[in-house]
Amino acid sequence: MGDELSTAIAVIAATLRAGTPLVFAAIGELVAERAGVLNLGIEGMMLVGAVVGFMVAASTGLTPLGFVAAALAGMGAAAIYGALALNLMTNQVATGLALAIFGAGLAAFLGQSWVGIPLPGMALPFPETLRSIPVAGPILFGHDWLVYLSLLTVAGVAFFLHRTRGGLILRAVGENQESAHALGYPVLRIRWLATLFGGAMAGIGGGYLSLIYTPQWAENMTAGRGWIALALVVFATWRPWRVLLGAYVFGGVTILGLQIQAAGIAINSNLVAMTPYLATIIVLVLISRDATRIRLHTPASLARPFHPEA
């Protein structure tokens, strides 16, 4: 019994860790999409954030500074996208894909001489006395700063989108750009800010991987998490708290699959590996079985370029 309890605790703690980079990346993309910007380049922005964050943290020895650099680098990558897709009105889908590929290449290039350098982790926020409380300790107090920051970010975004005037304007821009423009809102500027926020969050998500989760730089270390974050936004039907739930479902199923195996329970690992994707498909089917429902959830101006004169 004690064994099962400790396994359950380990699974929960590991789930929060595994879900955190997804939370950051997906919440950033959610804000961008709610403003009508479909940026598929999350994977690229995460990788650029991961490598720049690592370079700064490894050379200064300051992990928090690494996160600031990761956020700025992600914003930088998003700015490239913004200049092309928002100002020059290139196709958002193609531009985002280009950013994903470009970011991966750029990160690999920048990181060439940073491969194989170990990085010391970051001190945990809560003292040992709190962390060693049975059950509650490891679940509530055992995590790193960023896990708590990700929760605050989701709460902040949820509050901003649904409880503030700024959030209302952002959603208006995403739902009906012409009306927002007619009402005098600066559509382009708001989309730029949302895009930069998305980039910063993706950068932090990438930085979480290279600075805390596995403190090292390795090429392509995001291993597809940017694409999962993209799917999560749809999975969450563009709702912040559901993004959090979705990220933990994804993380949790992965972790559970590993723990079940380690416990020696006979289960096909391929089957376990595909469950998160299966879950996404099921959710997609569920939310789209009703055409009006999916239309109600999707920002109506998503991926539509904005011409002020039109």
């Binding site: 590991a14 390795a218 270390m221 291993a223 972790i255 380690a262």
Partner: peptide, 15 residues
């Protein structure tokens, strides 16, 4: 997949 590999190691240590 560095993240998954690390979690696999954690799972084994947990067990």
């Amino acid at each position: 997949d560095p993240g998954k590999e690390a979690e696999a190691a954690n799972a084994l240590m947990d067990q």
